[in-house]
């Protein structure tokens, strides 16, 4: 991956119009197959059902966006997809493996080597500096410190954060932290990137930069991206949309993306009009 932040045009996020996409031809194999998953949590005496009987697939090398209202179960679904949360029922296949059949240690190795996660919030090991935090997944993969730091430096350079290597991540701004979280997610060169509202707390410029990074990772390196976002503007980037409502996932077909986006934006406009009107009346 080239240093895309230095390339001015990369900040402009291009909508994904099928045929324009260079990799559209070889986009057939299924990477993730989710079958009838359910997820419930015990909270005291009660059982909270978060995901209901959801099934869908995610194709290799695609850019997928999951959207839905707050509390609908998006983060929970991402946890299930990122091999950290075994579902109460159903199965998750990644690259043909029924992943939750494997031992926790093997699953941890799989996470470290094949899945890069950017969380809704920023989490750091506070006693380690930026480069050590970025290198963490490599440490756990058994890499030597020197090599891990070389790769971590590469990842930092890609996002233009190399000068921050020796700083404490806690002292950086939200945008800077989010970029470093991106570096940590890609440092082990995983096949799958999962990002939970990575732009949630960022301004447009920083948000766009993160999106550009994700897009470049998908287009240039042909990695699969699964993204949760509330930001409607980004929906057109997706090859595929997965809508989640009250824990039920609904797959949108490729052709629907434009249509859905248009509807969503129209809904939004309507809602804002209504709000404005009630303000004027009340």
């Amino acid at each position: 991956m080239k240093d895309i932040t230095k390339n001015d045009t990369s900040h402009v996020i291009k909508p994904n119009k099928g045929s324009e996409h260079p990799s559209s031809t070889d986009r057939h194999r299924t990477l993730i197959k989710v079958q009838g998953i359910e997820q419930s949590f015990k909270v005291g005496e009660e059982t909270v059902e978060v995901l209901h009987n959801s099934s869908f697939t995610i194709e290799e090398k695609t850019f997928n966006i999951i959207y839905g209202p707050s509390g609908s179960g998006k983060s929970t679904l991402l946890n299930v997809l990122s091999a950290i949360q075994p579902p109460t029922r159903g199965r998750v296949e990644i690259a043909g493996f029924d992943i939750y059949k494997y031992k926790p240690e093997q699953l941890a190795y799989f996470r470290g080597s094949q899945i890069g996660v950017v969380y809704q919030q920023n989490y750091w090991v506070s006693s380690l500096n930026v480069i050590e935090n970025v290198a963490l997944p490599l440490y756990f993969l058994g890499k030597k410190k020197q090599e891990a730091h070389r790769l971590a430096m590469d990842a930092l350079q890609r996002i233009d954060m190399a000068p921050f290597a020796k700083k404490s991540p806690l002292l950086l701004s939200g945008g800077e932290q989010q970029r470093i979280a991106m570096a940590r997610a890609i440092v082990a060169d995983p096949m799958l990137i999962i990002a939970d509202e990575p732009t949630g707390s960022l301004d447009t410029k920083n948000g766009d930069m993160i999106m550009a990074l994700l897009q470049s990772y998908n287009r240039d390196l042909k990695r699969t991206v699964v993204l949760v976002t509330h930001n409607m503007e980004y929906l057109p980037l997706a090859d595929r949309l997965i809508k989640i409502n009250d824990g039920v996932c609904q797959e949108m077909q490729n052709d629907d993306v434009g249509h859905t986006t248009k509807n969503l934006i129209k809904d939004l406009g309507d809602r804002i009009d209504k709000l404005a009107e009630s303000k004027r009346n009340g």
Binding site: L31, E60, I94, A95, G96, F97, I99, Y102, E105, Q106, L107, A108, Y109, F110, S113, Q114, V125, S127, L128, Y139, F140, L141, G142, K144, K145, M191
Partner: peptide, 25 residues
């Protein structure tokens, strides 16, 4: 995805070195 095949099928995974654990502690 041969990479995935490799990393999940391995029964004994490589892991963090004692030296790095010491460093982190």
């Amino acid at each position: 995805m041969d990479k995935a095949r490799l990393s999940l099928a391995k029964s004994k995974r490589p892991t963090i070195s004692l030296r790095l654990l010491l460093h982190m502690s």
